[in-house]
Design a protein around this nucleic acid. Structure first.
Lengths: 211, 211
DNA sequence: ATGCATTCTGCATGGCTATGTAGTTTATCT
DNA sequence: AGATAAACTACATAGCCATGCAGAATGCAT
């Protein structure tokens, strides 16, 4: 039996969800709250397996709530339920620690399926949100790579490790001045003037992976 | 009618898929190849909407293939089909540009659904893979973050911009030596000895956002 | 009030970095 | 063959960084 918690300030919506969830034989609502503050005071809270949380809550916001829950009860899987579907809210919720993201208009069946999915190690998200997340992970295409040569990419990666030019040279079998030469070109292509900027830009453009 | 392409070296599997896909009234296989090289030579290739690609291919690997396809035909949605289910292959494929990831044991119905999903802007991935991706996006919990004070985080963020200590000082109204002092502590806490390492580590631990 | 943590200031110095200038080698393209 | 680009070597120097040492102000907790 999966133990479900709900944090949602709209009483009618909350009770509607409770009904649907309890109706399923594998699920059971053991806590239902109108705010994060109320939820955290409850003794039952720590027993929850899957928590459905609204983003727009009175008092502490859902995003803040997620952070706190994750801090204190890392094993609770949190599904955000919200009327917003813009990138910002979605990514904020995910970064904060939510594993799923539902629009409030979901059908009871979808809600129940999402809870079971979250409980069994999945991430209930809509296909469109999944695609947006996947896209943030795509490496840039060659055309966006600012045309850094293979050697330059190699050295940029080394730069990020904090090695001195001399050590980089030893690692990749190149003279110090050879290293220097490439770094010059890297800076020019990335339009930066310091190692730090090159690393930041390299990582944000996904030219290199952070350590 | 969604135009589907297949790159898969096992002839029987490829023909099986073709049959299933063509059977669906919304789908149509317009190209079916045994290797990336063969596919790229075809005139039909550029018309493909959704491409099913094996990872383990003779000649050019599927991962390399994905990169090339994305480079030359950015509008083709690529679904990787593979017997591997380990993190490395999955993330490599996604980073290279795939939008979906299927195990080869999928049922015909799932295959057809995945193609339609990919075509309509979704990302066909299993719930478990979705969760693993989501987890890579989670910010660290306070317990991991807590080590750096608010001021230190602020300065770490400035460090990543490549500003000199003097400029950082001006930005946050602090003497150069004050900046220096905090940086010392940051280095100690992150166990690094250079600005570059601090930035790399800060970004990979999600203490700061890249530029 | 005493202790402790956090934040901040100051000075010194060896080492590393950023940038300029000036070449050579190698491979590829025409 | 000559042109062009990428990779590499070399030297010089102003400026920035990393780290050691020393101490002060603020605020919170016991």
């Amino acid at each position: 039996m999966i133990k479900v918690g709900i944090i949602e300030d709209n009483k009618y919506m909350r009770e509607g969800w409770e009904t649907f969830i309890d109706y399923d034989k594998g699920l059971c609502v053991i806590g239902s709250f109108g705010s994060c503050e109320a939820a955290f005071e409850s003794e039952e809270f720590k027993k929850i397996d899957v928590l459905i949380m609204d983003i727009g809550l009175p008092g502490m916001s859902g995003i803040e709530g997620v952070k706190l829950v994750r801090e204190n009860h890392p094993d609770i899987a949190i599904i955000m339920a919200t009327v917003f579907e813009d990138d910002e809210h979605i990514f904020d919720a995910i970064k904060a620690g939510a594993v799923g993201y539902l629009a409030k208009k979901v059908t009871p069946d979808e809600l129940v399926a999402a809870i079971k999915d979250a409980f069994s190690g999945g991430s209930p998200i809509t296909p469109n949100i999944a695609r947006r997340i996947i896209q943030t992970m795509h490496k840039p295409m060659l055309s966006e790579l600012e045309q850094l040569s293979k050697r330059e990419l190699e050295i940029l990666q080394e730069l990020a490790t904090g090695k001195s030019y001399a050590k980089i040279g030893k690692t990749i079998f190149l003279s110090v001045d050879g290293v220097r030469h490439h770094i010059r070109n890297i800076y020019q292509k990335l339009e930066v003037h310091s190692r730090s900027e090159a690393i930041s830009k390299g990582i944000s453009k996904r030219l290199i992976d952070p350590m």
